[in-house]
Design a protein around this nucleic acid. Sequence first.
DNA 1: GTCCAGGGTCCCA
DNA 2: TGGGACCCTGGA
Length: 279
Amino acid sequence: MKYTVGDGVVRFHAGSDFDPKKIFECGQCFRWESLGRDSYQGVALGRLLKVWRDGDDICVNATAEQFESIWREYFDLDLDYARVRERVSIDGYMKRACDYGAGIRILRQDGWEALCSFIISQCNNIPRIKGIVERLCAFAGEGKYQDGQEFFAFPSAGAVARLDEQELRVIRAGFRTPYIIDAARKVDSGELDLEKLARAATQEALAALKGVKGVGDKVAGCVMLFGMHHTQAFPVDVWMKRAISEHYGGKLSPDVFGPYAGIAQQYMFYYARSSPQIA
DNA sequence: GTCCAGGGTCCCA
DNA sequence: TGGGACCCTGGA
């Protein structure tokens, strides 16, 4: 990945495999907002970042050191997504889904943030999920200041573990509140070691995550895919069920996609959700 | 204003 | 193994 640096901006060329709109709006993250014109701002890994398209280039406001040590990995820039799409285009439907979703990348988000966010996502809509996450950050996250802007980092598991249900009522997460606390306490105590699970076998990590109250197959799959970069994880939600029922007679083994089943899932999900009329 | 449904999971029969 | 309950609110 070649890039140039100047004026606090890192600029790189990712061809058709970095589409800010698709990356930030494909449902994998909840703290990125559009600033208009293919430009996004978000809080990730405790930092505020802007990402925008300038001609054929993608720009981020970071130093070379920050880009190398943080964002290159966060945006998964060393994986060749064109090759992944080729691998998972097992039939006409998947080919269309891959063409439609070209530009999506799976972000390597913080595991605890993903766990907490996807617990909140259950039986909920995106605007409300974002609202709850923001209230959680404002209530329990560390306030920071960067580039003349104030923002809140995602709270640590420890900070959330010390709260009780009553206190957390302000974030209005409803029946998910005790689930959030259970997750925070298990992570904070070390009972659930997310970094270790990131390196564990898929089935082992899945089982461990499901030990948290409110975490079933779907949430655990999302945490593994988006928070631990287990690209084999294959979360199936209502949209995926619809797509699998419609195009594969209700049966589709993730194994057909090999090690990139999770990425295949994201192309399917994005295609089904963004264009129910054509998919 | 009212109503439905939203990237599920738990619990109990 | 299946169905109801769950907290809240965006959008129609």
